[in-house]
Computed example of a mutant assay.
Amino acid sequence: MSGDFVEDAKVEISGMAKQGMRHPSTKPVLTGAAVGAAAGWLLPLVSIPAGLVLGAGVMFYKRLRP
């Protein structure tokens, strides 16, 4: 199962890199990154870069495993 996830992630990242904003996962992942960065700015325990990475990661995971 984890091998399937890793392979799916590679395909998805490759598609996002090649297609840019035309890829269906790019906008939700960037939105998640922005929301995470905003949460990092508002919450004292989370830094902005950590929030950005966590937000993007959560949305990327949700795109792979809805």
Rank of each mutant, 00 (worst) to 15 (best):
M1Q: 14
P49Q: 13
P49W: 12
K18T: 14
P24S: 11
T31Y: 04
G57Y: 00
P24K: 04
V35Q: 03
R65V: 00
Y61G: 01
K27W: 15
P28H: 00
G15F: 08
S2F: 01
Q19R: 08
R63F: 00
D4C: 04
L43E: 13
R65A: 01
S25C: 10
G36I: 08
W41K: 06
P28L: 01
V11N: 10
G20F: 14
A50G: 12
Q19E: 07
K62P: 04
V58W: 04
H23A: 06
S14M: 06
R63C: 01
W41H: 09
L52R: 05
A38L: 06
P44I: 07
G57N: 07
K62E: 03
E7Q: 11
P24Q: 15
M16V: 02
V46Y: 15
A56N: 09
A56H: 05
S47R: 12
L42E: 04
M16L: 11
T26D: 09
H23I: 15
I48E: 06
R63M: 01
S47I: 09
I48W: 02
R22G: 07
A39I: 07
S2K: 01
G40K: 06
A9L: 04
V58T: 06
T31K: 06
G15V: 02
L52W: 02
A34K: 06
L30P: 05
H23G: 13
D8L: 14
D4M: 02
G55S: 08
S47G: 15
M59W: 00
A33M: 08
G40H: 04
K18I: 03
L52C: 08
L43I: 14
P66R: 02
A9K: 02
V6T: 08
I48A: 11
D8S: 13
V6F: 05
G57F: 01
G51E: 07
V29L: 00
S14P: 06
D8G: 10
L30Y: 09
K18S: 04
P49H: 08
D4A: 04
P24G: 08
K27R: 11
L52E: 14
G32R: 12
G20W: 09
G40C: 10
Q19P: 04
L52H: 05
A34W: 11
G36M: 12
I13K: 12
V35G: 03
A37N: 14
A17K: 07
E12W: 08
L43M: 06
L45M: 05
V46P: 12
M16T: 07
D4I: 00
E7H: 03
V11C: 11
A9H: 03
G51L: 06
A9T: 14
W41R: 15
K27D: 04
P44W: 02
E7V: 14
G32L: 09
A33W: 02
A17C: 12
V35L: 15
V53Y: 10
D4G: 01
S47M: 15
G15H: 07
Q19T: 07
D8Y: 10
S25M: 05
F5H: 07
G57S: 15
L64V: 00
G57C: 12
E7G: 05
A37M: 05
R63L: 01
G40R: 07
M16G: 13
S47N: 14
G40F: 07
V35K: 14
T31Q: 03
K27T: 05
L43R: 15
G32Y: 04
P49V: 03
A33F: 11
Y61A: 02
